[in-house]
């Protein structure tokens, strides 16, 4: 394994169901992600994008293969160790923002740290919110924020632990173009600062902001583009869906 590889999937397979209705959502996937790289994962519906993300993040069991996060094979960890992993070494951002409705923006951001038993200094949390441009909104509840603002709180929550990898599942899927642009700008800036990002998306405009785009079909990686523009990504996707 190369020394600058943060996370690597080695021969990962995952089948849902059994018999004639079984679906091979991941079929011997080998892929590694370098430190500070932003990789977009694309493919038609049902191609196994989400499965790849969930397996890489330890949210989904694998049938075969291993997932190495640094020197740790996360497929061998038990539930407590995986929980610990989620609050220290991995961050998540989702299409539905998944903030805790009862907590303020600030409390949401502090949540992973508090779950880890830390009492984070107020400044640390405020800084994380300021970094996503929401320093003023610390005391608001999710329902008092716009979609774009909620997603930025979610990003702040994911980044506050300085995770080794940030997993993003359709982070702009529920946002209007303006809000989506803000979120992508934030992700770009953190990737440029050395944050490793793995992002599943349908949106060629979002994928084009990443460093590389990986294409999946039927649970297999079928192509990889680096530094492609929106048009090139869209064309490749259309070709796959045909």
């Amino acid at each position: 394994m190369q020394s600058d590889t943060v996370i690597a999937l080695e021969g990962v397979s995952r089948t849902y169901g059994a018999g004639p209705t079984a679906v091979r959502a991941a079929d011997g996937i080998d892929i590694s992600f370098r430190r500070g790289s932003w990789t977009a994962v694309m493919g038609p519906s049902g191609s196994g994008k989400s499965t790849l993300l969930h397996c890489a993040a330890g949210l989904e069991r694998v049938d075969a293969g291993r997932v190495m996060l640094g020197d740790t094979d996360i497929t061998t960890l038990d539930d407590d160790e995986l929980s610990q992993l989620r609050r220290t070494r991995i961050g998540f951002v989702f299409q539905s923002f998944n903030l805790v409705g009862a907590l303020t923006a600030e409390q949401n951001v502090a949540l992973p740290l508090r779950l880890a038993g830390r009492r984070p200094p107020r400044a640390e949390v405020r800084n994380a919110l300021a970094a996503v441009g929401l320093g003023e909104r610390a005391g608001h509840r999710p329902r008092e924020l716009s979609g774009g603002q909620q997603q930025r709180v979610a990003i702040a929550r994911a980044m506050v632990t300085r995770p080794e990898v940030l997993f993003a599942d359709e982070p702009t899927g529920a946002l209007d173009t303006g809000a989506a642009r803000d979120v992508l700008r934030l992700l770009r800036a953190s990737a440029d600062n050395g944050q490793t990002i793995v992002m599943v998306t349908h949106d060629p405009a979002a994928a084009a902001r990443a460093d590389a785009v990986v294409f999946l079909r039927d649970g297999r990686i079928v192509d990889r583009l680096a530094g492609a523009d929106v048009r090139a990504v869209a064309d490749r996707l259309v070709a796959l869906e045909a």
Binding site: D79, D80, S83, Q84, R87, F92, L115
Partner: peptide, 8 residues
């Protein structure tokens, strides 16, 4: 809560 790292 489990997703953001809450243990059982």
């Amino acid at each position: 809560l489990r997703l953001v790292g809450g243990a059982r």
